[in-house]
Nucleic acid binder design. Structure first.
Lengths: 375, 375
DNA sequence: TTGTATGCGTTATCAA
DNA sequence: TTGATAACGCATACAA
């Protein structure tokens, strides 16, 4: 079949071949002029560029990447882009990617390992050059290893994994929780409640240490569990006994503000009510605040509260919230930076980037008012 | 150079050819077994699949899409993914895309036309099959037309454009603002302020209509301008004169909560203070709330306020905010649905999908207390 | 049912 | 400097 001249009304995108034919040069020359590589006589380049412009030529980077490997795409697998933490982290990833001339492909895992696996598979099939992922599981990481084994670097965001030999960008969750609880202890509080959303699949077990007679937490190194660990450690350091009835861990995933509020209500609605509560993530912080209001508890007079994540609204409420702040933007940026270092060939040992957190003291915490039971 | 057998330690991804050689069949057969097309003897298919599994084969959809057209990628160009509106809309787009077996590539425009143009160009080069975009400009749409002309459908989100022959998913901005202002008028307010972030490039001009002696607004159909129009229309309908000193339009882009707060302060800090204010977007809502507190104004006793967008925090503050609510999730979903209809070949006339908004009445609006000047 | 050969749009290699 | 041609990985037309 003879090659027809492509009509103008054609929806097909013009290719280098089209431009070459139209400009009266070879595909090679057209390619060189358009791709800006090799040598080409200025006047020819002009002619080629002009015809390209006229035809509305736009390079097909899919074809290009087939030849030369790189797709200049990376993957981002977050739990839920509508959650401010991930939205802001994604922004950080986007910014760095753009500086590097890359674009991110987005996938939400909803914290489900099966969805995450599929997402990673699809991203690999799409030939992304690297993936930033907030892994659903810190133990089930085969799919991530598979990516690495085909040369696609992985950077973990927010959640590290001991099992995976990969870079990670995290905060010091134990330390952050410690600082929050220390703050409450410094203010004289002894009955300190804790709220933390926990993945049911990795629900921690609280065990009484035989030797020290102190409550400890068993479980993998998920942020929320680390924060519980920090909470317990802070109490232990001051020889304050932790009580299981002051710990409430609603299941992550099914926990929205409403569920968190109910958990907070149960925590606050007991005889020896805690005089202070630490909410270890932004969903429980939201729920805790609602519960206090619903129960008619005055903050900080009746109960002091420390939240997690310095979202917009923490300064809008009354009183403004004392919170542990992290920077999702910096975390996203750092993760992307590690990723591009790997993409560029960095073969050094996996790095664990620990970003700082800060306790922002505002009106929701105060010295314990009346002297009640010390522990 | 002779073709070496690919070692196991090799980082290169195995291809159909590798699997075929290893399984002792032709590439065509391997391809058929792996791609699940054509006819292939069951036992052979088994063998191929097993070898593929062993080698860790994963199809290269880039190569596949080169042959057979579709990349199964779409583009999403939002203003800023860290803004809750776009984050949630993106979530909607993602969900629909996933149902269709597509993944979205994300780009932020920061409301800058040059960045948007570049983003669209890159997306086209990456051969996306369609683009959802919140256009920075409703007039400068050449780059979007170019996409359409090469067969890549465009769906506009949040902002429609009269100039572009494309589907759009919007809300009735005029109507939404009208309802908000009517609510305030119903409560007896007559001096009603307005706050709206406006793109400086498309700054509206307020003109006194010669015939009706009423203030009107000239400018393109951007959401914020439409909302101003709705505000003015509501006042006009009740024969309440609008005054320019009650309208404040901080420049979008440079306007964070801090700048919005300053604008709100200026609005509220004048002799004949408005007894109510309508903030036409979530940034000015935030700033307005801060300003009231900073000025020591009691809401709703001293000033009633209506915000825009029902973000989480609107029920956490005291008093909870009366707001105009839209659903970014539904808007994202609807936009993606239109896009996939087009991708599947729908050639009907461009559709303008108008999603409902609702006025959620809460504690921040109340009947005007003292009788003061009526207009 | 299986295999061979070719094309998708680029880029790279080599010879002219 | 330019041009003909091969190759990237996959899917298909056609031959066996």
């Amino acid at each position: 079949m003879s090659r027809e001249v492509r009509g103008n009304g054609d929806r097909r995108k013009p290719t280098v071949t089209d431009v070459a034919r139209e400009a009266g040069v070879s595909v090679a020359t057209a390619g060189r002029a358009l791709g800006n590589y090799g040598k080409v006589r200025p006047e020819l380049r002009e002619r080629v560029l002009a015809t390209a412009e006229r035809l509305g030529y736009s390079p097909n980077v899919v074809a290009r990447s087939m030849r030369s490997g790189g797709t200049r795409s990376i993957g981002f697998v977050g739990v839920d882009i509508s959650n401010p933490f991930f939205a802001i982290a994604m922004r950080g990833v986007c910014d760095v990617a753009r500086e590097e001339g890359y674009e991110p492909i987005l996938a939400n895992s909803d914290d489900r390992i099966d969805i995450e696996r599929t997402a990673v598979r699809v991203l690999l099939e799409k030939q992304v050059e690297g993936i930033v992922v907030s892994p659903t599981s810190v133990s089930d990481v085969e799919h991530l290893e598979r990516a690495q084994s085909v040369g696609v670097p992985i950077v973990l965001l927010d959640r590290a994994s001991a099992g995976l030999h990969a870079d990670s960008v995290v905060i010091d969750n134990v330390g952050a929780a410690r600082v929050a609880v220390d703050h409450l202890l410094d203010l004289g509080h002894r009955r300190i409640g804790l709220l933390a959303s926990i993945d049911p699949a990795e629900r921690p077990r609280f065990v009484l240490d035989g030797r020290t007679k102190r409550l400890t937490v068993r479980g993998v190194a998920r942020p929320s569990i680390e924060r519980i660990r920090g909470y317990l450690a802070a109490l232990a350091d001051r020889e304050v006994d932790a009580a299981e009835r002051y710990l409430r861990c609603p299941p992550l995933g099914e926990t929205g503000p409403a569920e968190a509020e109910e958990e907070a209500r149960q925590l606050l609605d007991q005889s020896q009510r805690p005089t202070a509560v630490f909410a270890a993530d932004n969903v429980t912080t939201h729920g805790l605040f609602l519960a206090c209001r619903r129960l008619g508890l005055r903050v900080p007079d009746d109960v002091s509260i420390v939240g997690f994540d310095d979202l917009d609204w923490t300064v809008l409420v009354d009183p403004p919230l004392t919170v542990v702040a992290q920077s999702p933007l910096d975390m996203g940026r750092a993760a992307a930076q590690r990723l591009f270092a790997r993409i560029k060939g960095d073969e050094s040992a996996p790095e664990r980037v620990v970003l700082p957190t800060s306790l922002i003291t505002r009106g929701s915490t105060a010295r314990r008012g009346r002297a009640s039971r010390g522990a």
